[in-house]
Design a protein around this nucleic acid. Sequence first.
DNA 1: TCCAATTATTTTGTGCACGATTAGTTAGTG
DNA 2: CACTAACTAATCGTGCACAAAATAATTGGA
Lengths: 169, 169
Amino acid sequence: MTTKSIESASEVPAEAAGTFPVPRLDQQLCFALYSASGLMTKLYRPLLDPLGLTYPQYLAMLALWEHAPSTVGALGAALGLDSATLTPLLKRLEAGGLVTRRRDAADERRVLVEPTAKGQALRGRVKDVSSGLACSMPLEPGELKALHATVTRLVSRLRNATENAADCD
Amino acid sequence: MTTKSIESASEVPAEAAGTFPVPRLDQQLCFALYSASGLMTKLYRPLLDPLGLTYPQYLAMLALWEHAPSTVGALGAALGLDSATLTPLLKRLEAGGLVTRRRDAADERRVLVEPTAKGQALRGRVKDVSSGLACSMPLEPGELKALHATVTRLVSRLRNATENAADCD
DNA sequence: TCCAATTATTTTGTGCACGATTAGTTAGTG
DNA sequence: CACTAACTAATCGTGCACAAAATAATTGGA
């Protein structure tokens, strides 16, 4: 593992104050998560393409299949997305005939989103996505479960951290 | 709320009658990784803003501090990014005076990227980013280390899976 | 020498994501 | 009855990401 000492050999001309110990890319958890997320999206792409969905659109449909009708705000809270991201995404889903968007009669500020019949029909084809993916998951079941639990815990705590936004400055 | 919290460890029989058992959002590892990655980026933002860096730009600088000069292709391999993504990103770093881009004299096809003095100077201020972040990391050290190891293994295997692209169809 | 294949970068088009801003609705106050 | 405050969604500008096509230089033959 120790591939050190090649780095400082010649190319970097040794700053006056000396080179600071910068965190290495492969030691950063954030980079590992960033890479894993990107690769998962790439893994989903060929499965979602025939369904006419992008990965975030797939997540939105999952949330709507679980609970509908749903307001844009509630959907954003479930997915961790801003309304500025969600609105155009939902408009594309609406353009594809998968969801409907309508003002809530009781509170005209809200917009209710709901799968159409076509959107519901997509539900059956999603099983193939999950099963096709499970077979590509290159971890043992127990390991995978533990990973999911840990990441979920991390997410729930990061949510607090980013909300408070001034924990330790 | 308590709709059957069993994950149905084997296959799904219920072909008929309407609603198919769609995977729940909070049971999806991919969604957990997606959320974690997004939240990490959000957590970094206030720390990187004063440095004039976005999160992907920060990753690129980390890679360049480790090894420079570097070709665009090598950088893309290290970060898992396409050159079509990297080129405009590097141009913005160049516009900010943090890196230089020049053709390789030995092989005019390549473009070499290297931090400027200003880019090197940023190195010292990055320590604050790491330390500021470590304090917000809401996991125990051991747990964090295990998580990093598992995600790293997942990433390396996903890389193969996405390259081969036809493991189990 | 010239031409085809290879390699690397850039461009184009589509979509995701966020911060900041704007507009409209609802509710609470004087 | 305005008038204000809080809330919801939409809009604008910037930046990230990828696939596919276009561009450019190098290399390897015939």
